[in-house]
Structures are given as C-alpha cells and as structure tokens.
Write a protein that binds this DNA or RNA. Structure first.
Lengths: 240, 240
DNA sequence: CTTGCGATTTGATCCAGATCAACTGTCCGT
DNA sequence: ACGGACAGTTGATCTGGATCAAATCGCAAG
C-alpha cells in the first residue's frame, strides 16, 4: 500500500480512489470500497490549465474523468471554424461518453481545473458490474439532457438580452460557493466563449452586458467579476 | 390467460408485453419473459391523433410510453407563447423522464401515432431491479443527448438554409422505411412546427424550402412529401 | 513608466431573417 | 360548383444582431 492511499484510510475518511480522495464525484460515490481501491490504483489527479483540451472532437479517447475543481466547456466546431459551446460542466461532474468510441465534441478546461482521470476500459467494466454506478451515470446523462434542452430554447427563441441574462443566471446558479455567492461570481468564460455558448458575436455580448449594467440589473466589478444586487431582477430578464 | 396474450405465445414469438407484441422497444427488449408478462398486464396500446398531447409541460405524469408507430415531438413553450421543439422521437423510442416527477417539456404526437403506455411506478421498480433495462434507457438518454447537442450547433451557428437542410437530412435519416426511402419521405411536421424546431419563422422556412427546390437539391412533390434526388447534395448544404 | 498586444468596448453601417400584408392553394361541408 | 377556413407561399419593408472599424482597457515584459 502506498503512502497516499494509506494516509486517506488512516485518516478515517471513507476509502476513496487515491486521487479523488474525500471529494466524491458521480463515479466514486457509487462504488464499493474495493472498487474504489481498484479505480484509485489506476487513476490520476491532473491539473489542467485554462484553455487546454481534455478530449478532442473526433478522437478516440481512452479515458474518462471527474471534475474536481474548475469549469469544463464542451465544444463543437464546424469545418469552417464556426463554434458552439454545447455544455458547461462543474465539479463534481463526470466527463466522457460511455458506450461510444469516438467523441463528437471536445472537452476543454474553461478555467484552471483539476480532474481525476481514469481508464476507460476499467470504468466500462465497472459500469457493467455495478448497477448503482450505471444509475448514477444515467442520472447525470438525464440531467445534462434537461440542461441541453433548456439551452435549445435559449438558442432558438430568446433575444440577445435574454440569452446573456440566461448565461449569467446559469453561472450564478452553478458556480462553486468558493468563488461565488448567489449574488456575485467570477465568469468562467471569456466574451468569445460566451458568444459561442449563446450563438451570438462578442460585440452583441458586450453590448447586452453594458445594457444590463446600465439598467442596474448587474454591476461589472471587473471584466471577469459580476455582482447581481437582486437575483429576481435578473430572472425577470430571462422571461421564463 | 387472455386471448391476446395466448395468441402471441402460441405464435412462437418471444413472450412480449401484450400491447407491444412483436415490436420491441427500448424497454421490452431489456426485460425477462416474466417481467414482460407483468408489464404487459399493466400496459395499454393507444392510438394518438396528430397534434394531441401525451405529456403536458409542468405536469406530473404517472406513466411512460414506447412509440410503436409515428413521430413524437418534444416541446417547450415560454409564458409569452414562444415555442421551441427540442427533440423528435421515432419508433421504437422511449418517452418519459425517469427519476423526475414533473416534466419540463410536453410530448405531443406530430403524426398519427401508436404508443404503448405503462405505469410509471411499475417501470421505475423494474429499472431498479434490472440492470439491463437501466443500461438500455441510459443508452437512449445518451443518444438523445448527442442529438440535442448536435441540434444546439444547428440552432446557434447555422444559417436558415443550413437549418432547413439539416432538418430534411434528419427526417430522411430517421423516418421509418414504410413511409420513406433514403431519397423520398413524408414530412412529419407542418411549416409552423419546422419553424419551431429550427428557431425560425414559417415564412423563412417556406422561402428556404423553395430556395432548395429552385437550386435542384429537393423536389416538393406536395406540401408534405419531399424527394431528394442526391443526398450528397443535401448534405453539402449543411456544411458539416 | 513605457510599450505592445490581446481582450473588450463602442460606434457606424449592413443584411439575414423577422414582420406585416396579400395572395394561392387545398380540403372541407353544403 | 361554391364558400370559408386553414396552411402555405410570395412580396415589401423593417430591425435585431452581424459586420466592419476604431478606440480603450489591462496587463505583462522590458
């Protein structure tokens, strides 16, 4: 038994995979102690710089991960370069597409992040053996599906101002308490990324942001930090 | 044993739920004979007219269904009436949202359809008891998630012409062989529904359709029937 | 402190798609 | 055959957001 693992067990915390340790994600929470130990033996905690790719679109990835800290964006790009962010993931979400070899999208760290990486083969086997894990991942897939469909409404039918308000609301709601209260938070995305998430250009994102600022719904403390004095006012801007 | 069920067993086909019979969906294919018999005892085959609602947005539905025939559209509507279709489902897809009481979207028959309806409680129990079923539904959820994200790219980044071409391609690819070859098919959606799926107005849908017709990519045999002489040409219009 | 460079904001103009308004089927029921 | 009610098409015009073009900000390197 190596040092890192012994430390965890001896500390009295539940035996966890070596790299996730106490911070259980969608995966670790559904495993038995022995599975956790086995997964831990083959997993690796990795720091990822903002902007670097975790999985490339069209590639065959041989691993899955759990987000331990930070924000991950899921992107699709067209051959001519047009880009659409199709999802944001926060700790402790699972990143990967079970039951499919090739990824149809890329996963990229939006902020500096830490992820727990484990081998695809091993987890695929565990999913088959562990109904509770299957259930857990099924649950996350359904949650992501709900979010994707909600965003389809935003993309297809909301105005630019409503789109920007929707994004701010999403971030305010999902950002980690460490970096945010419900009324102030750091934007994990650049203006370009916001535009690619909302199906807009950076110019209209910028304009709508100053519009919301001038109407008193938000304060822009600095380029990445937003204060929302009254969440109800923000919610009204979404008109839903 | 009632007549309908005896007929099925005696015909030598695998014992199936009474109403689905030989046409197994995502659910029936994953159950044991005895489960199939139990589910069959509590399920009901229903004919649904085009346009009528299967599940209402915001309601607590006490049943799930399997599509046996026809096309079902999943809709979201905003308080002011703006509407977005967030998915199309074809036989033998499963309709419902496991693990959640209240539906965040409505499911409505786009064409005349037949569905196999079964009680929520019973299926929820079976999911818990039957890893294979969980796996099957997990698979469908992931498939829908992929489709939703692909459509997010369409909604956010494609032009009106590309959107309409994307829709035609989707229908050509998914329509049932009975009503379609790869190059000719019936549209399961009205112009209004197409507009609500693509985030456009009916007028631009109509204009882009005649544009595609005039450029020779499609023929409009009648308002609901499309012929695609060369699928590659259609695919080019999607630019992806 | 200055310079340089990428990110953001702001301004001026353009245009794809929305809106408004006829017009044309098509399919009823009488 | 006729009329009326929809569903779809086509045309004219308008506009929200895109595009093009400068500022301005922020910040790291010298």
């Amino acid at each position: 038994m190596d040092v890192a693992r012994r430390e965890v067990s001896e500390a009295g915390t539940p035996v966890a995979c070596r790299s996730c340790q106490a911070r259980h994600g969608v995966v670790c929470g559904a495993l038995s102690s022995s599975q956790l130990r086995e997964l831990g033996r083959h997993s690796l905690r990795r720091k990822i710089d903002a902007g670097s790719e975790i999985v490339a679109q069209g590639s065959e990835s041989s691993f899955y991960s759990n987000i331990m800290r930070g924000v991950v964006k899921l992107c699709k790009v067209m051959p001519d370069g047009r880009q659409q962010i199709v999802g944001l993931q926060f700790a402790p979400d699972f990143v990967g597409r079970p039951f499919m070899r090739e990824s149809t999208l890329s996963a990229e760290a939006a902020t500096d992040a830490e992820i727990c990486v484990f081998p695809r083969n091993l987890l695929d086997r565990m999913i088959l053996e562990t109904p509770k894990l299957q259930r857990s991942l099924h649950g996350q897939a359904l949650k992501e599906l709900d979010a994707a469909r909600e965003w389809m409404l935003t993309l297809g039918r909301r105005t630019a101002e409503e789109k920007v308000a929707s994004l701010l609301y999403l971030i305010a709601t999902h950002a980690e308490p460490e970096t945010a209260t419900s009324t102030a938070f750091d934007l994990p995305l650049s203006r370009t990324e916001i535009a690619d998430f909302l199906g807009l250009t950076i110019e209209t994102v910028s304009r709508q942001l100053t519009r919301l600022r001038k109407s008193g719904v938000i304060r822009i403390e600095n380029i990445r930090h937003i204060v929302v004095p009254d969440m109800d006012e923000l919610e009204k801007k979404i008109s839903a």
